[in-house]
């Protein structure tokens, strides 16, 4: 039997908002240590790697390892039916065909129950090598979201260049160019700080379309971490409260 409970459904609602535009379906791997998802978009340009630790749940039980194929669209519809303060419980039997979502509203004697059919999935799983990145940048997630939105108006790609001086985002198109530069802040660890750990300067271009999907995770946490090395995929990481993280990988654009 599998059972996972969160007293506030808000976090799970935000998680679904962060993946629903990128993924149509995904396998949720449930083990004693938590829930893991690794899934690529249909074009294999980006990948979502998500981890929700069992100790982050208010109640967690997983007697047997389960691989549950879920429609992200349906799961998102179900979670829209919960209010942010509702307690959410996910439950499945061993070898399940369905997963159950239950919402309890505090102080009310109302329980809503939704059952979702699982799907058989034949998903490609990728081995992601441990990488030491040339630049690791931490910056306010809202600032990052704003830059991605603003620059997307001027071109299809955003070029990210990182040096000791700071990080520069640029876009260029038929109508002109746009550049936003951020310097490292004096203090670190604050929600509005910008920190740069650099071994080597980098310059890479990425599709705005995907970066706009990633910034849907902004409500999850105040800081985003960008890991960059020349000619390898970008990692864009958001913490999911105290319970886990979501990492987006994005393949770079390369000169023809």
């Amino acid at each position: 039997m599998f059972e996972a409970r969160l007293t506030q459904s808000a976090i799970l609602k935000k998680v679904l908002d962060a993946i629903k535009d990128l993924l149509t379906e995904a396998t949720f791997e449930c083990t004693d240590s938590g829930i893991q998802v690794q899934a690529m978009d249909n074009a294999h340009v980006s990948l979502v790697s998500m981890n929700l630790r069992s100790d982050g749940f208010d109640k967690y039980r997983c007697d047997r390892n389960l691989s549950m194929g879920m429609s992200i669209a349906v799961m998102s519809k179900i979670l829209k039916c919960a209010t942010t303060n509702d307690t959410v419980t996910m439950r499945a039997v061993d070898n399940p065909d369905t997963i159950e979502f239950m919402f309890d509203t505090p102080g009310k004697d109302v329980q809503a129950q939704y059952e979702m059919k699982l799907i058989n999935m034949d998903q490609e799983h990728l081995g992601i090598p441990e990488t030491v990145y040339s630049c690791v940048v931490k910056m306010p997630s809202q600032e990052f979201a704003r830059i991605v939105r603003d620059l997307s108006q001027f071109g299809e790609n955003i070029t990210i260049a990182c040096t000791k001086e700071g990080i520069k985002f640029s876009a260029a198109g038929d109508t002109g160019t746009a550049n936003v530069k951020l310097a490292q802040t004096a203090d670190s660890g604050e929600s509005d700080s910008v920190t740069i750990e650099m071994q080597e300067s980098v310059k890479l271009s990425f599709s705005c379309r995907y970066l706009n999907f990633f910034i849907k995770a902004t409500p999850l946490c105040e800081q985003v971490q960008l890991s960059l090395s020349n000619d390898v995929p970008l990692v864009c990481e958001f913490n999911i409260g105290e319970i886990g993280h979501i990492k987006y990988y994005l393949a770079p654009k390369i000169e023809d």
Partner: peptide, 14 residues
């Protein structure tokens, strides 16, 4: 111009 790469050229299939 710029060509979009895919992740399968960077990561190995398990």
């Amino acid at each position: 111009g710029n060509k979009q790469t895919t992740l399968t050229s960077f990561f190995t299939k398990k």
